[in-house]
Design a protein around this nucleic acid. Sequence first.
DNA 1: TTTACGCATAATGTACTCTG
DNA 2: GCAGAGTACATTATGCGTAA
Length: 836
Amino acid sequence: MTCSPFKVSLRLYVIFYLQPVQVANNSPYRKQFIFQQTKLYNKTGAAENYSHYDYHQMPYNSSVATSMYNTRRSAYLNACSTSETITSQRNHLASWSQDDDYIPTSCGSNNSPLQYHSAKGRSSSPIDQNYETREKKSSRKRANTTSSGSGENKRTANKICRVCGDKAFSYNFNVITCESCKAFFRRNANKEKEIRCPFNERCEINTVSRRFCQRCRLAKCFNVGMKKEWIMSDEARLEKKQRVEENRERRLQDALNRAMEEDSIDSEEQSLDEAPEPQMNQQNMQDESMLPSMQQQMNQNQNQNQNQNQNQQYQMKDDSKQNAMFSQNNDFSNHAYDFAGMTSHTSTSQLYHPHQMVDPIPTTGASSTADVSATTTSMPTMDIDPTTTMTSNGFMPPSLARMDQSGLIPPVEVEQTLLNVQAQAQLAAQVQHVQAAINHQQQQLAAAVVAQQVVAQMGVPPVPATNNLPPPIIPPTPALQQNLNPMTPIAPQIIQPPTGNVVMNQINQQNSDMITIPKEVLLKLIQSNSIRSMSCSCSCACGRYPPGSNIVEEVTKDLLNGGSSNSSSADPQKEETRLETAEDMQRNGLLPSDDSSVQWLNSAALNIDPSYMEDSCSSRRDSVFIPLLENDLFSALSDPVPPEFTDLEKEKLSEVNALANQWMNDGLDSFSLLELHKDRGVRLITNGLRIITSFDSLPREDKKLLVYQRLHAYCVVKWIQHNESMSLEGIKSDLAHKLTRILEHDAMNLRVQPSVFNTLAVILLYHVDEQSDLADTVQGDRDEYMKLLQKVVAMNSMRDDEFSQLLEIVPDVLSAAAYLCELTGGLQEYFLDTLF
DNA sequence: TTTACGCATAATGTACTCTG
DNA sequence: GCAGAGTACATTATGCGTAA
Ligand SMILES: [Zn+2]
Ligand SMILES: [Zn+2]
């Protein structure tokens, strides 16, 4: 079924105006609601400033309640075991005044001002308060900015992701990115399925918002220079996988052979040198082969299980086949966790604990220590609620003859087994011995394998190590790459990253029912189509409608026609159909009798990207974005008199926003504040400034002077905008303190509207002294930008004093800029000469 | 019609392995 | 020893069907 924007707005009107419910202060839902608003902010790139909401006034909304409920339920189900219960949705109203904290359960980063964190790993959720204090079964944690290895060998994430600003280790696909953006890019860069942005194709991507719009994230990945050609092809991956597998098997086989040899020698020596073995508990030995010969087990099981399991593992285990693994891998798990029923914990560190050596083979069965870890940590899949995920008897081995009817191993046996200290000691010694032998063998084999590979690549010149060097600006051609390195993928056809035009075209071609007015036009229309001035005379500029026709009339006509004609309802007389139009609503008493509500509805319908709403309504019934859009409209309702922009102002606004986009595209948002003032930074900034017509048309000397005088102030504002990703490295502590204090100002609320600070930055660029030679030249422009800023602030503002509040930070910015100028030594004239 | 729930699966983030 | 690929896994988010 289709869902026209008109229908949606109609529904929202009903929700917001006919079901008002007062909401208590400090309720968990308030926090969640604000969280969702901010989520939307991040999603939209801050089209609205939601910080103005007074939650006391927010009406109860069943859609919001449902999404809240689902989120909590989902967290509950994932929490496995908790005595807490989920508050029934029916009781939402009653529990509206609960006083526990809302902590979002979704994943995210620690950088969020909302404490929207949990990492990719569970956060404590409202329904699982004890989670943090419980023993975590998961082996996964939030990136702790170190990885792979121990001690001094740790890799540290001291770089900044060019895509989202998160911490990064190193280059991935040609660009410094965080691990999540790396994975995201690898997964999505080659996807043919079109991903659409529900907003304006200009979503800001940061650590929080990166999950909200795949399209913009991917676009940014491409924009910063990530290369999809550097992702391995399927064939190359398969080839690599096979090679790895072969290597593993070979290493393992050799290691085991070696271990057995040494072990037999040692055994002989021991039998000669040592006193008789301590007496073993006969019962244990007989019962469960508690003390089988390591060699025996290796011989018997190694070939049968290991390789088989390994092959199975590699055939089946795949990122996209996880669920299949649960069933396919049961046998393997049964072997691997033969003892799991007796011990409830199987952390990696306990792998070789004697009491777990009953069946050591499956653990050593993996080809390396790391593999053992990986295999063993698959045990926490038990974390997943067995009632929902594991419907069979899960990991309990069916072959355990000692099981009682309940499927449990008698605890007495467990105790006896575990208490046999001498047996444990002996086993531990054996295990250590074997492990040492394996390690030794692995080292030797690693060298041998390397040598083998070199031989295999005979005729191929060795590729010099490129550690610590950035990847080449021009990547090697596919052919060259292949010649140099058989491991590298065959580069797929190079496809240019999507551009804005392509995006629009794709959207336009998507669905014939869509409204295909260019978004620019639509936005302009909305801006000028306030309640106060409904007599909009804009005409369509994209050719969809006849030249000169009134776009409001045409769009409204389309919307109304589409709404009824596209309805999948079998019965055209149904209630839904009868409420298609504002007039219907009015007739049914749902709207006041005066026409303004009808008019508002018609205009509000235009406020939604129709293509997105269509998708949302048809395929994402539970989506939280629906209520979020409702909020959006609620905001629109609360702002009955949006300011009108003159054409000139619109042009200026679009220029400052384009300038901001350029800033991001140039990667300046990941520069440190100090780096901005070095040659490369200044060059990029001044290049971008040419987007501003009034700047570009200045005489060369004026440009130089302006940049010389005000670049620092401009940069401070940009830093304020991007302080999460722009470091203060190298900045003296008192200046850093000065800068961070600015961030505490209330005016920072306005950061949710990028246009505000985009404009402010330009204003500060033009903020020259009265006595300056430039004063006459740029004063006029500055005043115009000032007026523009006032309107931009007012556009979504619910308070009158916000504009003046914003201006309060200007002295601090200028003061910090002066200090910064002093610190950097200012710009040199000879360098400025090279810029313009 | 709304709410609650089970289930399936897509998407994401992280720790890790492997190779050159 | 390291960089930069890929892999495996845990976890969350989302959507759909259905029953109360
Ligand atoms: Zn990132
Ligand atoms: Zn987007």
